[in-house]
Design a protein around this nucleic acid. Structure first.
Lengths: 195, 195, 195, 195
DNA sequence: AAGTAACCGAGACGGTACGTCGTGTCTTCAC
DNA sequence: GTGAAGACACGACGTACCGTCTCGGTTACTT
């Protein structure tokens, strides 16, 4: 991620660090994880972590990103609402997966660490938003979405409720939410004429 | 907040602690604040903090809550959309206020600290959601809102985008967002017939 | 030794630290001792050491000084040569005692650490030299020592050879050396007339 | 100093290492010097140092020895006291020379490192003591020195005070000391008859 | 002239210790 | 018994070096 000679980097150490980081996060959460323990558990010198990552948040973000896979491609079956359902369900599934609790923790540390915020935004959020926005644009062209809607606003309207539950913990994160959100968002809150 | 004899409690100390906590959060963020420094700056023994609060998050939440004022009452002019606009604008204004950055930080620590999460939910979120839900119920009765919409889902749909921006920092938190959200949410994303 | 409130100081911790320090020095030498291990072995936080001593050398010097007892008083039987023999033998015995190996180690670190050098000189050497010089002065008055000899030079002439062996390790430190030194130093190296 | 093929050894690297070692010692003392920095400053890989020397003390001893020149020959003008004066003054001059501060540092590390002690004794001390002893033997034959004096004891009596001052730092190392020591040592401490 | 074996520079690696900061508990003294 | 003060055991921080270990690259000997 940073400066030294990438060629000589030990892949063994890198993988052990990412694995240890995720494991510890799963056990006690990112907040109570420590560089010290990651190093200990990975059988690695602390310096080896600091050489390649600036903070534990950066380590965990890389680990999470790797674990999540390269899912930046957005489905396109021709039916935007179905595609959104697919993709949003994937997001909910991830947010609900205990293996991915560090995901929301990363958003947590970002609140007090601008660098972590930037990294999360650039590394995680923006690529996915970009893909979604692109899909929505095509939907507009195909007459499946209002054309007077700002696409960034649409993305926020659809995805924010999913994150909201994960972050605020007001209600459990569950796939049913996707249908609720899509129903409300597409139909609108205004009362129906016949009502 | 806890057990010892409330009557003999020093109001001077309590206020100094809350003030110091907010001040430090403003300077360096909740993450880098420490009990040590709060005590030092408040001119108070550490024990005095630990006696009355379980963690720095609890201190800060109390401070924030006090600073926010008891605004749990929701406006009701008869026009729900206007009332939502008023209330949501107030939320955005608070989220954008540098004095209230610890607000999102509290959501941050909640990701790794179930007790903080519970306290935030009970102490901050739920009373306000409750008031909003009540207002929306009246709107349904008055035919200003679809009756087939779950009110909790509606609250999430409207407010989540505001929190989303504050927490993800993808775009600046600004009052214009309120109008965008209301427009989209009430009209719905589906293309208009004439389009 | 330094600044914080001496009254509240834990005597338990102080003694445990001094004991642990000496024990470790005996096992592996001052050079390979570490603050970390002293703390660990004393069952004490590192901070507690750093609060009261500036370096491991300072800890060990205090421990050594305490172990050596307050032997700053010089014997005075009326026979200066006998008194020197007594006192110098005590020095040799100490230098030869495995319990006191840190003593020469302290002189060792002083070579690279002016503060340690100053502390050793003031805390250990000077009080003893002072006592010796005083005894020699009385000897001069009683006609047992040349009056044209600078007393500091005399002290050095007598004691330096003892330290020399301990520090250079050229020959084992042994009490016989005392008699050799006294014989040579008092009689002088010049050939005897009758020779 | 050790095993690999001496023929293929890079003289450039060797000299750069010795130079860098002395330079760093002069700047911050042997204690705060590090292999890391010697290598860096010499423009040399760490391995290249470890290949030829077992420790930084060994490097510095070799550097010092080289800088001191091969002065193992003892002057012999026929007047032993004059010759001692010459030689001892040379020692004092060296001890007082800032370029040679690592000299006493080497004695310092020897206190905790038997291997360094052995190397220093064999490589530095013994050859010089041997030369001195030889000169003293001739002096005895010529009736310039008591014949009942053990020569090793004599060497120690004369030279120890010089080292004493350098190591204990009680008084500044200065050439005048040589005359004081010779005067006292040759004349003896016993009071003169006429006094 | 090609092959090969060594030393060389560089620097990543698993470690240990550094000296500092913050934690939450504790004890002491003043009010 | 509350409150200011702060010492305490503990654990983590991020950095500096340790000594070992590959990596090319460059000689300088072999064949």
């Amino acid at each position: 991620m940073n400066t030294p000679n990438q060629d000589r980097r030990s892949q063994r150490a890198r993988q052990a660090i990412l694995d240890a980081a995720l494991e510890i996060c799963r056990e006690k959460g990112l907040g109570k994880a420590s560089m010290e323990e990651i190093a200990r558990r990975a059988g690695v010198g602390k310096q080896t972590i600091y050489r390649w990552w600036p903070s534990k948040a950066a380590v965990v973000q890389e680990a999470i990103n790797e674990a999540a896979g390269d899912v930046t491609d957005f489905p396109d079956t021709g039916d935007v609402r179905a595609d959104l359902r697919t993709q949003m369900t994937a997001v909910v599934t991830l947010l609900a997966n205990p293996r991915f609790t560090p995901f929301t923790s990363l958003i947590g540390v970002a609140q007090d660490d601008p660098e972590a915020a930037r990294a999360f935004l650039e590394g995680i959020v923006e690529p996915r938003v970009q893909a979604c926005r692109e899909r929505l644009r095509r939907a507009q062209e195909q007459g499946q979405l209002r054309t007077d809607a700002d696409l960034d606003d649409v993305v926020e309207l659809l995805y924010a409720p999913l994150y909201y539950r994960a972050l605020l913990r007001n209600r459990p994160v569950a796939p049913e939410q996707v249908d609720e959100v899509l129903k409300l968002a597409f139909a609108g809150l205004a009362p129906v004429a016949s009502q």
